[in-house]
């Protein structure tokens, strides 16, 4: 049941959960994680299928080319995040949530209507840098470890405290000299880059890529990861992504009800478990 392919998808879920968590730790809801993942995936899909020079002579897609894709995807996502974040994050409140929905929709419409990106069909036959799921597992695990270690470092750093201060009360945080705009922008940009990097690996893994990856459903699913796991510690969204990705596969009969279950998690989670499954109190007990 727990085959390599499911494990790869679980790690992708954990990374996307972290991407939603980062802005949320600064009190901002971004629903554009699937959008940025879509962008990252398209960068990988376009480069690896259209640029022959990156392909190399071996049957497997060369790793340096993969690294180049990761770098480019990060740059593109960063630029896009700044484009959206610079005007929107100067405003307080729910504007980022609405603007990220708008970004998802604009991306979807543009990608669907552009023959250059394969239109509605998307891009097929994306070359494989790894021979089996184990390679993808390793690459995603490295990315997850790096992202987790960064989150852990941030939490202990003044930056993490500033993010928590902005989340709890943006106005009060500004009064103590915290540049809340910069903090929010940083968190949003980090979220975008992480989602895009995940998208690069996901596009190679799935072998095909299209605009449906960034649908509204995907926004709901990734949000459920964080609401379920908890947004007070980075382990929360990781656990949420792992468990909620595996859940529909492990409980086959739930098939049709998948989104009802995710919807119920989002609806009832904040009411019943406001801090999610992984709470700071729980971690303190487990890791003395």
């Amino acid at each position: 049941m727990l085959d390599g392919s499911l494990l790869v998808q679980m790690l992708i879920g954990a990374l996307l959960g972290l991407s939603v968590y980062l802005p949320l730790a600064a009190g901002q809801l971004s629903l554009a994680t699937p959008g940025f993942m879509t962008v990252g995936g398209y960068v990988a899909a376009l480069l690896s299928t259209r640029v022959a020079a990156l392909g190399g002579a071996e049957p497997l897609y060369p790793l340096p080319s993969l690294l180049l894709e990761l770098l480019l995807a990060a740059v593109v996502a960063l630029a896009l995040a700044l484009l959206v974040g610079l005007p929107v994050l100067r405003l307080r409140g729910i504007y980022l949530a609405i603007a990220t929905i708008a970004l998802n929709e604009i991306l979807r419409v543009v990608l669907l209507n552009n023959s250059w990106t394969g239109g509605a069909v998307g891009i097929f036959a994306i070359p494989q840098p790894f021979g089996d799921p184990l390679g993808y597992l390793a690459a995603l695990a490295v990315l997850l470890l790096l992202a987790g270690a960064t989150c852990q470092a941030i939490a202990r750093h003044p930056l993490g405290r500033a993010m928590a201060a902005v989340r709890d009360d943006e106005l009060a945080a500004s009064c103590t000299g915290i540049d809340s705009f910069r903090i929010k922008l940083l968190a949003f940009a980090a979220s975008a880059v992480l989602a895009a990097l995940t998208g690069v690996l996901a596009a190679h893994f799935f072998n095909t890529w299209n605009a449906r990856q960034g649908s509204f459903d995907a926004s709901i699913t990734t949000l459920a990861f964080v609401v379920f796991g908890g947004s007070r510690h980075w382990l929360g969204p990781v656990l949420g992504g792992l468990v909620l990705t595996a859940l529909p596969e492990l409980l086959r009969p739930v098939g049709d009800l998948r989104l009802v279950v995710f919807g119920a998690v989002i609806l009832l989670g904040p009411l019943l478990f406001p801090q999610g499954v992984v709470t700071p109190a729980l971690l303190q007990r487990l890791l003395p």
Binding site: I94, A97, L257, V260, F262, G263, I266, L268
Partner: peptide, 28 residues
């Protein structure tokens, strides 16, 4: 949430959840 004076962000999440549940029940 109103009883608890929760932050506005949570209303957004719960109402999104209510919508998703409703739409998918309709789909079923």
């Amino acid at each position: 949430l109103r009883r608890r004076h929760a932050e506005p962000l949570l209303y957004l999440i719960t109402s999104l959840g209510a919508g998703v549940v409703l739409v998918n029940l309709l789909q079923i």
